[in-house]
Design a protein around this nucleic acid. Structure first.
Length: 344
DNA sequence: GAGCTTTAGAAGACCACATATTTCA
DNA sequence: TATGAAATATGTGGTCTTCTAAAGC
């Protein structure tokens, strides 16, 4: 259950208690100097939307204001700004995380790779199936052989040498590809469109092609596929990952989120072509052209996305206002509901 | 740098009960 | 097939506890 932000009063009171205890200890051990005041703030342990919630609540003091501001900076950016609205603040995060992202997605060296394959395959090695999509595990096995190596690699991101840059901008690759194809007089204008996996074309070049995700493209592609949340269904509804269509869409969402977190928005994958029925994603080597995304459709999608983004709400969603009212009226003891007295 | 203590804050548990949903006759 | 009763599931908010990352020693 997702609760609203904790009551500040509770926090302050418990903090006050702690301080009392501390001061007591200090008096007994007065010879020792008091601890220095912390200068750094801890990072949030878990992903929290708390600061996205109810931002308009009246702060009770400027102290609290600054506290909240500091904490806000620490929150993960669950819904990062659209690339065009990004500001410089993100730069540091990108610098820190791009290495992780590059390593995560560097696995995609085969043109047959799909997001599905990339995310679901965890044990494949090049020995087992040379034709199967390269797995994330395989990516790490370039350097190690642990099954959970990828995770460790991600965690170890700080240890990686910054000079070990493997991140290849998709646009660069596409440009190269287009130039090559233009040189061969067989270029298709729209080939830059969503979802071209062009590892084949660049294989053999100096660098291994990294699987890239075009963040904007994915969001645009998703914008006309309905909300991320399943409105009107019970909150217990979870994606049926046995359903190929659902799984594909779900994986895309997760990819967007993951990329937003670890890779920023600077350089991202291109999304595979989405079928017209909104269901499956297909890797189509003949993407673009007349069968691919039509310009008008894409513009409309972008518009829809922008509109949705403008009107996005971060407040807690109350499904049943009546229950809220009832709960508010319900008697409590130390925050817990208690039985109503019979006289009422 | 390892190992310990302290601090602070996120997350989750807890409660009663009205309402929603499902099942069955 | 329609209806109603019974059974079951769900959601709601304030406070407290637990857990744990980070800082300090």
């Amino acid at each position: 259950m997702c609760h609203p932000p904790h009551d500040q009063q509770t926090k302050t009171s418990s903090a006050a208690n702690n301080h009392n205890k501390t001061s007591k200890r200090r008096t007994t051990a007065s010879l020792k100097p008091a601890r220095k005041i912390r200068t750094k703030r801890r990072k949030p342990k878990y992903l929290s939307l708390n600061l996205k919630l109810s931002p308009q609540k009246n702060p009770q003091s400027s102290n609290r204001k600054t506290k909240m501001a500091i904490r806000k900076q620490q929150q993960l950016n669950l819904f990062p700004l659209h690339p065009e609205n990004q500001v410089e603040d993100n730069r540091d995060m990108h610098e820190d995380n791009n290495v992780v992202a590059s390593f995560l997605f560097d696995a995609a060296t085969d043109s047959t790779t799909t997001l599905d394959g990339l995310l679901s395959s965890t044990t494949t090695t090049s020995d087992e199936s040379p034709l199967s999509p390269p797995s994330l595990t395989y990516a790490y096995r370039e350097e190690g052989d642990s099954n959970n190596g990828l995770v460790r690699t991600a965690m170890r991101c700080k240890e990686r040498d910054a000079s070990e840059e493997r991140w290849v901008s998709y646009s660069e690759v596409v440009e190269k590809k287009i130039k090559e194809e233009e040189a061969n007089s067989c270029v298709d204008d729209d080939d830059v469109g969503a979802g071209a996996w062009c590892a084949k074309q660049v294989r053999g070049q100096e660098r291994t092609l990294a699987l890239k995700l075009d963040y904007q493209e994915i969001l645009n592609a998703w914008s006309d596929k309905g909300p991320l949340y399943v409105d009107g269904e019970s909150p217990q509804t979870v994606p049926d990952l046995h359903d190929d269509n659902v799984r594909s869409n779900y994986l895309i969402i997760m990819s967007v989120f993951l990329l937003a977190q670890v890779g920023g928005v600077g350089s991202l994958w291109r999304v595979p072509e989405m079928a017209s029925d909104g269901g499956d994603f297909k890797v189509n080597e003949q993407v673009g052209g007349k069968e691919g995304w039509k310009r008008e459709h894409r513009e409309a999608s972008v518009l829809r996305y922008k509109e949705k983004r403008q009107t996005r709400l971060f407040s807690k969603r109350i499904r049943y206002e009546v229950r809220k009212l009832n709960a508010e009226k319900r008697p409590r003891m130390k925050g817990r509901f208690v039985k109503r007295s019979s006289e009422v």
